[in-house]
């Protein structure tokens, strides 16, 4: 079998730009981090391929968390915002057709999860989950309410900064990424042990959405700009011999 459309493996991940697995300031990582070194190898087809989801996956309100769990004619309580930006790879190429899933607490910092017992109330019109697929330019946007800060049991008085969790699929399984979006100017960012797992101050800036008044919709919702980068593919394809030799 000849390989007429060769697959390009991904540029190796620079693990020094990500949090280490063992980060004792985030206590749960202590028992959930490997002690052995990772086994490194260049991508095979297993890592260079990955699932891709069509636009027909999406319901009409999947990108609008203000209404996708709300009773008809109502919407979630909180500061209305739009989060938008581009998904690109390490070489700056747009990543079209990629699924981004998001989840978050409500305006008071309460998650709609059976295991969240924080005393702040649930919003009956807010679920906290949404998803989008990037367009042909790698662009995405969703509407939501700004989540509240949230207390958690780590040190005696730790609070998460306002954040939106997100999950990204690119075109290969090796690009799989989950991270968190923070908001420009939030004083809790610098105090957070989970943000503190990041290796350098620049890393937190890469996770911080910036207020974008130019794209704010007057009398409706403020906008935050948030670009996401996944690993790019190398320019050298696999050798053209997948069987035999």
């Amino acid at each position: 079998m000849r390989n007429h459309n060769p697959v390009h493996p991904f540029v190796p991940r620079n693990l020094g730009e990500h949090p280490p697995s063992y980060a004792p300031g985030y206590k749960t990582s202590v028992l959930r981090s490997p002690r052995q070194a990772l086994l490194s190898f260049s991508n095979s087809l297993t890592e260079a391929t990955g699932p891709v989801f069509g636009h027909n996956l999406l319901g009409p309100n999947d990108h609008d968390l203000t209404v996708n769990y709300a009773a008809p004619g109502t919407s979630a309580i909180g500061e209305r915002i739009i989060v938008h930006g581009y998904l690109r790879d390490g070489e700056g190429r747009p990543v079209p057709g990629a699924l981004i899933e998001v989840w978050q607490a409500n305006a008071g910092g309460r998650y709609r999860h059976v295991r969240d017992g924080y005393l702040a109330p649930l919003d009956p019109n807010f679920g906290g989950c949404g998803r989008v697929i990037t367009d042909e330019n790698g662009y995405y946007w969703y509407r939501t309410v700004r989540p509240g800060a949230y207390p958690w049991p780590n040190n005696p008085n730790d609070w998460r900064p306002a954040h939106i969790h997100f999950s990204v699929f690119g075109s290969g399984f090796a690009q799989r990424l989950i991270s968190q979006l923070y908001f420009e100017g939030d004083p809790m960012i610098a105090m957070c042990p989970i943000v503190g797992t990041l290796p350098d101050p620049d890393a937190a800036a890469l996770l911080t959405a910036t207020l974008d008044m130019d794209n704010t919709i007057p009398f409706d919702a403020r906008a935050y700009r948030y670009d996401i980068t996944v690993r790019g593919r190398r320019s050298t394809p696999f050798e053209n011999k997948l069987e035999g030799n």
């Binding site: 990500h18 985030y26 790879d89 899933e101 998001v102 989950c129 990424l177 890469l206």
Partner: peptide, 22 residues
């Protein structure tokens, strides 16, 4: 060297199900 740095990872947290396994 890539032009853009990969977005750094953060933990999925205890409530990952809301977004991934609602």
């Amino acid at each position: 060297m890539p032009t853009f740095r990969e977005t750094p990872s953060q933990t999925a947290g205890p409530y990952v199900h809301i977004g991934c396994v609602p």
